[in-house]
Simulated scan of single mutants.
Amino acid sequence: MSKVITFGEIMMRLNPAGYERFVQADRFEVSFAGGEANVALSLAQFGLDAKFVSKVPEHEIGQSAVNALRRYGVDTSSVLRGGPRLGTYFVEKGASQRPSKVIYDRAGSSFALSKQGEYDWNSIFQDADWFHFTGITPALGNDMPAICEEAVKAAKEMGLTVSCDLNYRKKLWSRDEAKEVMSRLLPYVDVCIANEEDAADVFGIHAENTNIETGNISKDGYIGVAQKICRQFGCKKAAITLRGSLSATDNNWGGMLYDGKNAFFSRTYSIHIVDRVGGGDSFGGGLIYSLISGYSSQEAVEFAAAASCLKHTIEHDFNLVTPDEVTSLAGGNTSGRVQR
């Protein structure tokens, strides 16, 4: 069984019930999530050995976050304990023409205050095949950029495949900061995952003839983005999610995988969204699983896009689907008829 390591912050997610706005809410639903935690959970659901590495406070709330992953089979044995608090974030789900909103409350979290040398990467990567992180982790500042650099260097020295989802978050750092740090990390990355906004915001790489606001997407423009990422940083593959936002409720969704020579596009799904947070992470999880499993480039991007399509129909961040469900959708079973 292949072993994947993911590294990042797990947080408490708080959202009003249903489609209530923040100012309406007198109670909040609690769940736990984070970019790399979401990927680890997807991979565990798909049957891989998935280990999540992080740091949480040594109290019941920190343990609740760990338990949320353990419940679904994620290995949390390398999660450190200590520090002052668990990061939180609030989600207001949008509908129709009203967009979703996310408010972070994560400054000074246990994970963000991690120090260089705390994580024993040689031990963590023992017998592992793949390492995954996102641009959110170095964006937390303090020692995090240096810790991520330690991790990717150790991963490459030990022969792991490294993947990174750029995941630019303007509320965490500036474009200049992101470009400086990610330009140091990307040369160690084999598989880069992004969307057009990430590539443009971090590296100034734009998809020509594309307008994500209107849903108009140019395939040639995205091929150009992937080629430039691979040429500039030496990545072997680049995957890009293709979202056409018709409204907060209805999106067109697909993906592209460039394997260094050719580009492969998935089918496009018309999604009526239940919860879109974690959609990109579910694409990443599906892509990692399919590449580890030896799928062809076309099969890999079809699996990743289908996995993420299904995630958009599930409340909260975790993608609670099986490989058979994803394969069925990728194979064309899109009717959503009741299974009896």
Rank of each mutant, 00 (worst) to 15 (best):
L310F: 08
C235L: 10
S218F: 01
G286R: 07
L69Q: 12
P323W: 03
L186Q: 09
L291V: 12
C148V: 15
I288R: 09
G47Q: 05
I103A: 13
H312S: 12
G280M: 11
L166R: 09
M12A: 08
L329I: 04
S245E: 10
N216Y: 00
G18T: 00
I147V: 15
V53Q: 05
R175D: 05
V74Q: 12
R70S: 14
I240F: 05
T268S: 13
N67A: 15
N252H: 06
K55C: 13
V66M: 11
G18E: 00
G8S: 02
L242W: 07
A304R: 09
G224L: 01
H312W: 14
T334C: 12
V338Y: 15
P323A: 06
H59I: 06
E315C: 07
Q45F: 11
F203L: 06
C164V: 09
C148M: 14
G221L: 06
Q232N: 13
S247R: 01
V162H: 08
E208P: 00
V4I: 15
A200F: 04
E197Y: 01
G279C: 11
D120G: 05
S96H: 08
S218H: 05
G135H: 06
R85G: 07
I103E: 09
R27I: 05
T322D: 03
W253I: 07
R27T: 15
S54C: 04
A139G: 10
V181W: 00
I212F: 02
E177W: 00
L41Q: 11
K171F: 01
F131G: 14
A330N: 01
F133P: 10
G62E: 07
P138K: 06
E157Q: 15
G224M: 03
F52C: 02
S64I: 02
R169T: 08
R337F: 13
L41T: 10
S163T: 11
Y72I: 03
R13D: 03
I5E: 05
F90Q: 04
K219I: 08
D127W: 04
T313K: 13
R81S: 12
L242K: 12
K171M: 13
L80C: 05
F125M: 01
V30N: 04
S96R: 09
P99A: 13
S31W: 06
F133V: 11
A263V: 04
G62T: 09
R85P: 10
N167E: 04
D201M: 06
V152C: 14
L257F: 05
